[in-house]
Every structure is written in structure tokens, then in C-alpha cells.
Nucleic acid binder design. Structure first.
Lengths: 221, 221
DNA sequence: GGGATGGTTCGATTAGCGTCGAACCATGAA
DNA sequence: TTCATGGTTCGACGCTAATCGAACCATCCC
């Protein structure tokens, strides 16, 4: 058994092409089955099973058995943060590598684990700080709760957990921060519930409808 | 040649025990020679040379030749951010694993790439936002420049570069943000120059002298 | 029960990579 | 010039880990 820094162990879990492909597929916060993940990794079920066992063992993924299916999802938002930190990196080497339409959509708005990222996510974060809806410790102020109520979010509605209410997450495309944490998730959920935007099926892209984008911007006024 | 997500390539560079040990040793922003890095990695010079070549090739490190020495340092603060993101992870598995005196010092104040991290770093970041020295986009306000002048920092003194003036960096121990970027470096430099604190030789620990800590807190008033 | 599907375990193969010894090049000092 | 030191290149060795075929277990449906 070779000893070394703990970070090497974690990095090694992400270092395999098949595993990293699976992790990226889970970046939208969904839970996928082993067979589906084998598909995105381009490997057989046996191999995927081995990989997934390693990832669960390393506490990068968590698994939930449901009937004969086993659903895998990221172990928490810190995994998402790690993956975005790695993306900052790779897209750094060749700045304007490929900017196809799919790429532009991703930069505009996408889901990062379970919250809003991209231009729209960064705008949300900026305005909440700028307008004083969030305080120094990223705590929600009275003014903030008032505005959130306009969106249909009551303080009591947010599920209690040991996950922080608000966190800042470094944005891959914008190189700035966007809103994460339980509130980040709640806001995205509301935006989707209000049909201001929708998720593209097999991707992380969030598409804002023109009317929805207008209302979102107006709310942030 | 096996193809896969770009992040796997980067993660693989960190995944090796010897390489990650070298990277951690460079986390304080210093530039070390190949032989020194071979030492911290516990490997021979030949092996280290191979590793370092890979890290430079992957743009994780940069190298500067000086005489017959070659000095290696982290390619930028995004590398530091990645490493801290990995540490958040590993120290997460068993929360109160070991809290020796060295660990306590690290949590109190340490150097992260080239800026202040730990409790003191987080406090700095919080107060600058709270007091309005920093604006929404992490731009320095007039009020901020006034306070920075009290510390002996003039706007013109800060070296121009394409590195952002202010950035938020996720803190490994505090799970909150601290001040990074050129200003983060400049503030730490001043704190050291004023002898409010000093660096422990072979570690990332920053030790505040009692009087220095008092003055630092007073400045942040 | 019988068949189909999701998932795991085992074993064998293979490929990649970390490692070091040895030789070699470059720089600086005596 | 000669020697010492920092660093790299080359080649060979050995280990680890990814991969898949085949067999096996569990669950669901008919």
C-alpha cells in the first residue's frame, strides 16, 4: 500500500476517462442507474460496476437502491465544486476553442449540481449581494426574504439540513461566483416551476423563455 | 490514444502521490528547484524530472531557468483553488480527525498560494465586504482604497497584470471564502512587511504576533 | 415457475505508467 | 582544465488498474 497525500486518492478517482465522464453526466444533480452510466462512460456494465463501487467507496458518489435499480448521484455540492474547478482549468488551455451554439447555451445558463450557473447564475448572485439581499456571511437579510417571497419562497419552505443555506460556487465559464447551497437550489426550482425556463433533456442547458428572462430580470430590479 | 473528458487529464496529473506532494509543497507560492521537489516527493531526481515535465506540459506548473537551477511554481491561483477544493474533500471524510497544534495553527492563518487563508483570511474577506470596501463585482471602492492606504497600499503600487485584482477563494478549513487575487497577495505582503505576522520556515503556517493581531483587527474596525 | 432485465463477482489479459540505474549534458567553482 | 553539482534522457523492470467474457444473484413481470 503506497502512502501519500489524501488529495491524490481523490484525484485518482476523477482521473479515469470513464469515471470522469460518468461524473460529468451527474453534474446536473440527477440520479442515474448503473446501466445508464455505463452508457455515458462507453464501457460495459461489469466495468461500470467496478468504477461505481470505487466512487462510492471514496465518498464521491452516493447510491440508493430502489427495486432492482441502483441510483447513483453526486455525494454533495462539494463534488460539483471540484468538477467545476477542474473545468476552469481545462477550458483555460485554449480559450476560444469551440464556441458552437451548444457551448453558447451552456455559458448563458446551465445547471451546476442543483443550482443555476452561467451568466444568469452569476447575475443572480451579483444582484443579491448588490441589493443587500444577502449579508456579509451570505446570510439572507429581511429585505432578501421579502424579495424571495415575491418569488413564492417562504423561509419555512426551505428544507432544513446541515447543508449551508447559501454558498458561493466558482463558475466555470464566467470565472466569477454564482449562488449555490439550499437557497440556490430553491431559486432554480422556482424558476423552473414558474416556467420561466426549462431544462433541455439530455444536457445541462437551461433555456430561458423570452418572457421568463424578462420577468427574472424584473424581479432582480 | 484514449480519448475522454479533459478534466480526467488534469485530475490524472494530481493523482500521483509524488506529484501531489510536490504540488502541496508549492502551495505557499514559492518556487522550488527540481532537487528540492524530488526530496518532498520522496523520489529520485530522474523520476522527479519526469513528473515535473508532465506538470509543466499540462500547464499546472511553470518553470523558470536561473543558472543551472530550474525553479518550479504553480501556474496560477486556479491551481491553488483546485488543490484546496480537493482538500475540502479529503478532510471531509472524518471531520475531527487530528487536531494537533500544527493543525490548529493552519486553521488560524496560513498562506494559500500567495494570499492569506484560514480564520484570519476569512475575517479579512468578510469585513471588506461588510464595510463596503469591496463592491458587488469585488471591485475596490473609494472607501476601500482609503483604508488600504492606511496599510500603506497605494492603488498605483499594485502591479498590473491580467490576473484579477480581487478574487474569492474557497477556504479549506473554514468552508467560506477568503480574499485572493493581486490584492490578496498585496495585503499579505504588507502584513508580513509590517511584522504583524511571520511565516514558519518549512510550512504554510502564518503566525500572528499578539500585537500584530491586535493592529490587524483594529485596522479592520 | 419461467423468462427477462439490472447488477455484481471472478478470473485472465493487457496496457500504461511510475520507478530507478546508468550515461550524458550544462553550469559554476577551484 | 578539472571537478562537483543540478538536471535530463534512455532503457529496462515491475506493478497497478482498466477491461471484458462468463457465470451468478436478485428483482420484476407474465
Amino acid at each position: 500500500m503506497k502512502e501519500g497525500p489524501e488529495i491524490a486518492r481523490i484525484a485518482a478517482l476523477v482521473a479515469d476517462p470513464a469515471r470522469s465522464a460518468m461524473l460529468l453526466a451527474l453534474m446536473d444533480g440527477r440520479a442515474l442507474t448503473a446501466t445508464e452510466l455505463a452508457g455515458v462512460g462507453g464501457i460495459t456494465r461489469q466495468t461500470a460496476s467496478s468504477h461505481l463501487a470505487k466512487l462510492v467507496e471514496g465518498e464521491v458518489l452516493v447510491v440508493e437502491a430502489q427495486g432492482r435499480h441502483r441510483y447513483f448521484r453526486l455525494a454533495g455540492s462539494h463534488v460539483g465544486a471540484l468538477l467545476e474547478a477542474l473545468m476552469v482549468f481545462s477550458s483555460d488551455a485554449v480559450p476560444p476553442l469551440r464556441t458552437g451554439p451548444r457551448d453558447l447555451s451552456l455559458r448563458k445558463a446551465r445547471i451546476c449540481y442543483d443550482h443555476l450557473a452561467g451568466e444568469m447564475g452569476v447575475m443572480l448572485y451579483d444582484r443579491m449581494l448588490e441589493e443587500g439581499w444577502l449579508g456579509r456571511d451570505l446570510d439572507v437579510t429581511d429585505k432578501g426574504w421579502t424579495k424571495l417571497a415575491d418569488l413564492g419562497l417562504q423561509q419555512g419552505d426551505l428544507p432544513a439540513s446541515n447543508r449551508p443555506l447559501c454558498r458561493a460556487c466558482l463558475d466555470w465559464s464566467q470565472r466569477r461566483h454564482h449562488l449555490a447551497g439550499r437557497l440556490g437550489k430553491a431559486v432554480l426550482d422556482r424558476v423552473l416551476a414558474l416556467s420561466w425556463a426549462r431544462r433541455l433533456p439530455a444536457s445541462r442547458v437551461i433555456v430561458f423563455h423570452p418572457e421568463g428572462e424578462r420577468r427574472f430580470g424584473e424581479w432582480l430590479r
